[in-house]
Design a protein around this nucleic acid. Sequence first.
DNA 1: TCCTCAAATGAGAATCAGTCGCAAGCTATT
DNA 2: AATAGCTTGCGACTGATTCTCATTTGAGGA
Lengths: 148, 148
Amino acid sequence: MEDYTKLFDTYLNSRKMKLTASRRLILEAVFSLHEHFDAEQLHQVLRSASQDISLATVYRTLPLLLQAGLIQPSPRPGARGMYEHIWGHPRHAHWVCVRCGAVQETPLDSVDPILAREARNLKFETQETSVEVKGLCWKCQNSANDSQ
Amino acid sequence: MEDYTKLFDTYLNSRKMKLTASRRLILEAVFSLHEHFDAEQLHQVLRSASQDISLATVYRTLPLLLQAGLIQPSPRPGARGMYEHIWGHPRHAHWVCVRCGAVQETPLDSVDPILAREARNLKFETQETSVEVKGLCWKCQNSANDSQ
DNA sequence: TCCTCAAATGAGAATCAGTCGCAAGCTATT
DNA sequence: AATAGCTTGCGACTGATTCTCATTTGAGGA
């Protein structure tokens, strides 16, 4: 059993919930993706693997994964209901191009200590950090047109 | 005319659009709020000021303010269609409590130089930075129950 | 292994936010 | 004041997400 499956199982048990076949399959699908995804896309992945899981169940499972700390809402601006998994996906900053939508990532190593200090001041117990920078990527700076 | 109104007017003119009474009122409402808001809330503010502006118009205006650089999507996790205005609202980190939803803010002064350096490496032209930390606020750490 | 009961699921109805189309109302310009 | 084009309100519409409820499944005890 993968580590993340154990983690999910532990979370579910603590809530008197069950690690069912459906939930296991959804979890697999989530970790098979390495991009941002939404409920619909996840459902497609499952269907194409001949796993007939209702869309409603996907919608019901996503918040559980979120609470279990296995996925996080994607910080992509304007995106609705988008997630990304966290496992093996270390803390990182997103650099989002406002023109073409491309997303690059950089590690958070240098920013973390600063935020840790502020957390102490605020008495805030940090669970997850996300840093998002919007602007123009290298390519779009060149093809500098009117906005959009 | 406030500075931000001029800025909006300039933006609209460049698009052959007009700074109408409705748009002016919506702009005022946006800048009267110092919290995150969505289209519905903005509409309420306008109604309570006896300004009868259709919700559809509010929805139509928000993207214009966004493009004009006067507001930005709120980085609050899971929030849909939330905005916050930028004018006179310096760059800041959001500390969001995952249990009670409270949001605190801290300035970005110490983080900015680091991100500036990384931006140079990526050849990324930064427009707006948002830092969001999720976790438990001081109050919720104490009343430490089961989640939610 | 079989039973029991709470938890989980599927299917489709219901809800909700956000968008669209169109007729009527403004605005700047001539 | 007439014109042309941009805006607006209204209500219909769409797509996403949630809810309801009858049925099924899973874990633990007999």
